[in-house]
Design a protein around this nucleic acid. Sequence first.
DNA 1: AGACTTTTAAATGTCTGACAAATGAAAATC
DNA 2: GATTTTCATTTGTCAGACATTTAAAAGTCT
Lengths: 257, 257
Amino acid sequence: MKIDPDSNAALSAQIAKAIRDAIISGALIVDERLPSEAELAEHFDVSRPTIREALKRLAAQSLIRTQRGAFGGAFVRHLSYEDAREQLVTTSTLLLSMNDISFDTACEARFALERACAPMTAARREPAQLAIMRREIKRQSEADLTDEAFCASDVAFHRALVDGAQNPVLSYQLSGSIEAMQPLMNMITFTARSRAEIVEIHTSILDAIVARDSERATEILEQLERVTKRLAHSVMDAKAVAIAKKEKPEVAQVSAE
Amino acid sequence: MKIDPDSNAALSAQIAKAIRDAIISGALIVDERLPSEAELAEHFDVSRPTIREALKRLAAQSLIRTQRGAFGGAFVRHLSYEDAREQLVTTSTLLLSMNDISFDTACEARFALERACAPMTAARREPAQLAIMRREIKRQSEADLTDEAFCASDVAFHRALVDGAQNPVLSYQLSGSIEAMQPLMNMITFTARSRAEIVEIHTSILDAIVARDSERATEILEQLERVTKRLAHSVMDAKAVAIAKKEKPEVAQVSAE
DNA sequence: AGACTTTTAAATGTCTGACAAATGAAAATC
DNA sequence: GATTTTCATTTGTCAGACATTTAAAAGTCT
């Protein structure tokens, strides 16, 4: 592991990369203890704060965990699905919010992925996921639900649909896509009529899966994609009109203290 | 932004979280400059090294970039597709290598996702991606190709298939899945016969897309999934026999460099 | 006045040295 | 033998300092 002090990259970044590569290549295995900060500092011929900055970078990526005390130190971390999912959601959310992706593009991607799951979910038809889907449909029918709670339930329903495929890799990949869209979905105000429409579609999806009719499930998902896009457009059009009436359109702002 | 010094979590982690939340919530917008390290240190009532560790955590997640010099500092970073893709590949690769996921599970997920793209790729039929697919098929037919080069070409072919859907969100999500599988695919030794079979399948996929026949494309992708699994199994069985002959079977290892 | 050079201030990158806090092992004590 | 205490090790944090980079501002020359 050679570090070039003349490189433009910060030393801590170079060291982080060296260790990261060692982990990815398998030279450092899970739960293995890294040398102490002092030893690493000597090895790379830098000071301890520099080593610490490098380790913090790795910790931010969930590659290592640190433990204080004698026999403590930095350990290669076992990356769980939950950790990976969390990172994926963060990254996806930022990607969507920073790259002015159209609602249609995000929506299209999401439903394409869900349609990929549907046949597997139908084939396996896990009772646990079917129960969740039933529960969420029931919840979505409650009249006094806030828009936000309706959205959350919608996410739960679709996650169950994806988890029903019983493939953890697929669940990991797709939950990011679905959750990252939640902020976009939250912009939509669901009228009583559109809620009823969505509940009906969800019910049809569940029925199709119970019946192991994957083609029908796929078709209905296509329908849901169209409905979702239509709803979003009507909301956005209304907003555009409202803005045009008041003043020059500004960049959408999210207020925060 | 309140920091609790009595919390178990390290101060630098708490501060990183506070700033991260501000970025995700939109309180800090792209290219906005954060206060200097000295100012942040005063604001959070901690020392500069602690602030620096927090900033390094954010830098590792591509949330900020730093610039030296007067009027330098930490800036909220515009997260590009390429940055996001890189992070996704790293995370996915580690996830696959650390959670002893069966080849079949990873394979199933990958092809389910690709099948989701195929109809869109067929509908849009972009010349650029079709050209890449043709080029890679040609390359895969070359007899003197190493197994690794064959795999790389395979990845390029499938990436073109995904990119052909002309949906950047989808490309982002799927390229991670495909690239993360490459180490697993590299375990396979492709015989001349299996290569011919794959080239034929790739050709059929391309034909189906050119013909805008999405159903046929989907069917052939299903076939490719079966073939890939069969190939992998034959390799793994051979290895298992070899190990059984020599000694007690160990946990399956992927040899590196 | 305009173009070029030099200065300078502000910011990050790094180092040294130190102390606090946690933690498990070993030693001491009952 | 069981419990308590001590202790060494390691991370977490702090303070202060210097080096390096960078762009704006001031100065200088044509």
